[in-house]
């Protein structure tokens, strides 16, 4: 087979992605610009509403806080798992992988049991007489953040454990001999070496939690919308298809832009020459 005929092998995949990813996007994009009163009218209208800004802000806030918590929780356990003996590590990897492969509805539903009015936390606090009436934890931004952390923590751990296992322990020993205490070694030697993995994980989690639908739908309720649940509400509940398209495009732009920024930042932070 020569190179010319090899190109034909690309055609089905190429057409599949082009016809079913990009054409539909163009198709929903076109009507949003067809207005008598201006090209960007619908977008301007959308961005005029303070409610919509609230939704955008919430989307960002949830993604940002989720990344931070996932990182803080994910780093120590990844260090720990990555340094176990192989047999133990394999078992722990299975324990991390199991929630990762379990349906998101199931994982979010578990938190209804914990956070709800009748949930464990409220029952516990009531029993201790710390509160008089159940707290509203479910259907808040906090609930969405907790659910997102739970959803994305295994992904972060999974992507970090590999990099941890590859670390050369002698490098930390060298730091210790040069007078660096364990805390100093963690921040000046271990984390900088893990930086590329950490940043990749952060980008994954940020983009994922920013565009997730299931978690805000189950744990956020109707009054705590993010962009993805707003798209569904506009389209299916209110039947406002053009508006849903506008939000869809805004979501694409925002998430692509955030990922681009994070990539730039990570590229900037990773000072090591890439092809040495």
């Amino acid at each position: 087979m020569n190179r010319k005929s090899a190109v034909w092998l690309l055609v089905p995949a190429f057409m599949g992605v082009l016809v079913f990813t990009f054409f539909p996007l163009i198709e929903i994009a076109i009507p949003t610009f067809q207005n008598r009163n201006g090209f960007f009218l619908l977008y301007a209208q959308f961005l005029k509403s303070s409610y919509n800004w609230q939704v955008i802000g919430r989307t960002f806030l949830i993604a940002f806080v989720t990344v931070m918590i996932v990182l803080i929780l994910g780093l120590p356990i990844s260090l720990w798992i990555g340094r176990q003996k192989t047999a133990v590590r394999q078992v722990l990897n299975l324990l991390i992988l199991f929630p990762m492969l379990t349906n998101a509805v199931v994982r979010n539903f578990a938190w209804i049991i914990i956070l709800g009015h009748d949930g464990i936390i409220n029952k516990f606090l009531l029993a201790l007489h710390l509160i008089k009436s159940p707290l509203d934890i479910l259907y808040t931004d906090a609930a969405i953040i907790i659910g997102s952390v739970y959803l994305f923590l295994p992904i972060m751990i999974n992507s970090l454990v590999g990099s941890v296992a590859e670390l050369n322990v002698e490098i930390e020993e060298a730091a210790a001999i040069l007078g660096s205490n364990p805390w100093h070694t963690l921040f000046k030697v271990v984390i900088p070496q893990l930086a590329p993995g950490i940043l990749t994980g952060c980008i994954l989690v940020f983009a994922g939690s920013m565009t997730a639908y299931t978690t805000p739908q189950i744990l956020g309720g109707n009054r705590h919308l993010v962009l993805s649940t707003l798209i569904y509400q506009q389209a299916m509940t209110l039947g406002n298809w053009k508006n849903a398209s506008v939000i869809a495009l805004i979501l694409i732009i925002i998430s692509a832009f955030s990922m681009w920024i994070m990539r730039r930042v990570s590229h900037h932070l990773d000072r090591r020459p890439s092809n040495a």
Binding site: I77, W80, R83, L92, I96, A110
Partner: peptide
């Protein structure tokens, strides 16, 4: 050192692991 024998690290990690597994266990019980 920050290895598997580090007690602080082990404690924190087991707590996080419990946090990951516990919600699913609760679902099973209910």
């Amino acid at each position: 050192m920050l290895d598997r024998r580090n007690k602080t690290l082990t404690t924190i990690s087991i707590l996080i692991l419990a946090l990951i597994m516990l919600p699913l266990v609760l679902v099973v019980i209910t």
